[in-house]
């Protein structure tokens, strides 16, 4: 019960240093920033619980049919999966750096960090595209169209419940991919605002929130990678 955050009457603020970005219903910039951040964390846990549904489906089917999951997961490209992991981790670093730079008023460095993040996200999606098409070529589709054929996929046709693995694989990586695309849109928008000099060490809420979102996308992938590719 000790979190008494909102009570400061903020007597220091008067008309002349009332910042332009402070909305009328907040007392201080501090309060506005804290609110936005808590709101973002709450949004992030809704994202986590959204993915939780798929983690549950994965856990249940893996526990029921471990052999099928094993046979199916070795057909995924471990090398590309690992490369993609490193790509996303690097993009997390660059977005963290962009916050670091904007806090030090180095707008230009911050901007280029965001652009680097954007590029890495693009690389991730391109690799994902090649992974998907390699699967589609051999009839590995989610759901009813599942019809494996060719090379290493042939034996899968005779193992029950591998279709479930690939359904879960496609749904999980698909929804994750949608989050990457959305993230790219947001990062592009924020990068343009950084470029136009909207943010600085006194006001960088949007950059920080974008970073939080992007790290969450990264964390989801940190779990998807071993679950789908490795074990």
């Amino acid at each position: 019960m000790a979190t008494d955050t909102a009570t400061a009457p903020a007597t220091t603020e008067t008309d002349h240093d009332h910042p332009a970005h402070l909305e009328h219903h907040f007392v201080s910039t501090e309060q506005q920033f804290d609110s936005a951040k808590l709101g973002m964390w709450l949004f992030l846990i809704t994202e986590i619980l959204l993915f939780a549904g798929m983690f549950v489906a994965y856990a249940v089917y893996r526990q029921w049919h471990p052999e099928a999951f094993l046979e199916a997961s070795v057909t995924l490209d471990q090398f590309l999966g690992t490369v993609n992991t490193i790509v996303l981790l690097t993009s997390s670093l660059t977005v963290a750096l962009s916050i670091h730079y904007i806090q030090k008023d180095e707008q230009s460095k911050s901007f280029w960090s965001l652009i680097a993040t954007l590029a890495l996200a693009g690389v991730f999606l391109v690799i994902k595209y090649f992974e998907y098409t390699a699967k589609f070529e051999h009839g590995i589709y989610p759901g009813a169209l599942f019809d494996p054929h060719g090379a290493k996929y042939e034996p899968l046709a005779n193992i029950p419940y591998v279709a479930q693995f690939f359904s879960i694989y496609f749904v999980m990586t698909g929804i994750h991919g949608v989050h990457v695309v959305v993230g790219m849109g947001i990062i592009a928008w924020i990068a343009s605002r950084v470029y136009r000099g909207h943010f600085g060490s006194d006001y960088f809420t949007h950059v920080e929130l974008t970073g939080l979102y992007w790290h969450l996308v990264d964390i989801i992938w940190i779990f998807l990678y071993p679950m789908l590719y490795l074990v």
């Binding site: 846990i45 994202e47 939780a52 549904g53 489906a57 989610p142 479930q164 749904v171």
Partner: peptide
């Protein structure tokens, strides 16, 4: 609301995929 609602979201999404693609979950 914050903790539970996302789960009905993913449930409905999976149900839609079950109807449209037959993902077999």
């Amino acid at each position: 609301q914050v903790l539970a609602t996302p789960v009905i979201g993913i449930t409905m999404l999976l149900l839609i995929l079950e109807q449209s693609l037959g993902i077999g979950i």
